[in-house]
Write a protein that binds this DNA or RNA. Structure first.
Lengths: 335, 335
DNA sequence: CTGAAAGCGCTTACAG
DNA sequence: CTGAAAGCGCTTACAG
């Protein structure tokens, strides 16, 4: 620890000199290979590392190996609660594997996604986590990067890329079926207009299975504001739906605000169920009944795809679990 | 674009060859220096870059320059809404300066902050953004790193480091004074126990200026759960305070949940004002009256400190602006 | 204005 | 088990 606070940094050569070995041996020790090292030599090296306070220069390592110990993560907007939680979990899990997370928001106005992907690649990331929908050309770009890649979330057309996702249709069905069990017949949907998003289908399926006809269909953005706008439309609809499924908790929260301001009570006038299972869902009022995504499992699966790229990774799909709270009309206790 | 999808990457040497110049000249062109290049030569190079689809290898660049085009950001937990918004804004602003953001959560259990700081340094980041409280030894570590550094947020003891922050005391005073104007006399405080956090002092000052005595003082964590726990205590206090200042919107939201469940009405039974100005503050009920941190200005100032490190940067302090909504008892219109 | 060359700090095939 | 050396792809002082 003597020189921990030195200004010019200690390099592998210093360590080699101190330990009386070659720099190659220092590498072998630090990387556990590729060559074996005698136990005593190894201890001398480790000692030198400790004494000199040595830390490998990651840039040199990345240049030499052609790969930095970083994962690139592309999300649409790290502020939306679900993605914030996803980033956090991936950071935890990635760190356990010695990888830092380079987070890129695709909603940046200055650069398009292709440009951001190329930038990540030029930084020699060792893996790419994509949690946004990709155009066909962006997808081709990603494939050309020849990087371990995993798509998180069900973005349909990315079949060529390994994916970890959640069964949106099943989660939605569970939520909508729960609303149906409450006896609601006129059930609206608020969510994405994207074809790949199976929530709309899950809603439709649940309704037709119960021989109910589809209620009001509202497409909106996955933001508080988008939810608010949808809430306004719901409040003003006539007849007003008796229940609604929202494609994200964030949308639901925005919706609640609009409904409340217009004197529409939840769940008395309109019941709500949503999707994601963010922490805040348990703190708004009424607390949200929501299909919870198993974040830890998703993150673990994604990281493991990157760490062990297999020829045919395919799709790893999880099923969300419905968490019942008050927004649907139930009266459970607190978590 | 011919070779955009090649597998082995094109290097500076390829560009030089194609353009019929030396690799040095390619560098001069791409970096706008340090040497001037004839206009025609420059165009030949740029053309080669375009044709070959060349992208510089960031690792090589970082090794050579001793500095990667990345900023390291240390936050406690990127999920808490205010920090999520901070990360997002810093990402935007950093990107405009060609810097990516390497986000590190200090709440990771696997590594202590010192270790995380050393890891960031070993990655050759070109600047360090710290938005957590540092111990004295961590602070010494940071200084020893000799990296452009900026502290975001008022973490008192970091006087040696340039800081961009918000006047916590002033923001809190504004909020508490507003509660006082409503006529509330018994005003509680929910927030941090940390000495450097001036919100408690702001609350105390506002009260004593109005010749009111201090109300209930509750220290809790900056989470929904922490706010919930505080809410429970408030609800059960007797006499129950007539108003409360919460140190963050997130705390306030947790508090609202606890109060609501216990039948304590906000603002009728207890008025609430808080701090931060996160987006969600406008969507919960009642909507939060809160001291809004000027995020864009904070981020801009922080980035500019890193980009133009001056010998004596000192403290750049912003004053939050009170946003009045319903939680304090006012009845404003929607934003 | 341009180029040849050293150097950044690693990794790893190759030789012993 | 250990070492000398080439190479990763940049930047930049130095020379012209």
């Amino acid at each position: 620890m003597i020189d921990e606070h030195r200004s010019r940094s200690v390099t592998r050569a210093d360590v080699a000199r101190y330990a009386g070995v070659s720099t190659a041996v220092v590498s072998y020790v630090l990387n556990n290979g590729p060559k074996p090292v005698a136990v005593l030599t190894k201890e001398r090296v480790l000692d030198a590392v400790r004494v000199l306070g040595y830390r490998p220069n990651a840039a040199a390592r990345a240049l030499s190996k052609g790969s930095a110990d970083m994962f690139g993560l592309v999300v649409h907007d790290n502020r939306s609660p679900f993605f914030a939680e996803l980033c956090h979990t991936l950071d935890q899990r990635g760190t356990q594997a010695g990888r830092s997370l380079l987070i890129v928001n695709s909603d940046r106005t200055q650069a398009d996604t292709a440009e951001q992907l190329r930038d990540l690649a030029s930084r020699q990331i060792s893996g790419l986590i994509i949690s946004v929908a990709l155009t066909a050309s962006e997808q081709a770009l990603v494939e050309s990067l020849r990087l371990p890649t995993v798509v998180i979330g069900p973005f349909g057309e990315t079949d060529a890329l390994p994916a970890v996702s959640v069964d949106l249709a099943a989660g939605t069905r569970a939520a909508v079926e729960h609303l149906i069990e409450h006896g609601y017949q006129d059930i609206a949907f608020v969510g994405s207009a994207a074809r790949y998003d199976a929530r709309e289908r899950g809603w439709a399926d649940a309704l037709s299975a119960a021989q109910l006809k589809r209620g009001l269909l509202i497409h909106t953005s996955f933001t508080y504001e988008g939810g608010y706008a949808a809430g306004v439309r719901l409040a003003e609809a006539s007849p007003r739906p008796r229940a609604v499924f929202a494609a994200s908790d964030q949308i639901a929260i925005g919706m609640l605000a609009a409904l409340r301001e217009r004197g529409v009570r939840v769940p008395e006038d309109i019941a709500v169920a949503s999707f994601d299972g963010i922490t805040a869902a348990d703190y708004v009022w009424p607390r949200l009944t929501t299909a919870v995504q198993p974040l830890d499992q998703i993150a673990d699966a994604a990281i493991s795809v990157l760490l062990n790229p297999t020829p045919d990774p395919g799709l790893r799909e999880f099923v969300p679990e419905l968490r019942v709270r008050e927004s649907c009309g139930c009266t459970p206790g607190r978590d």
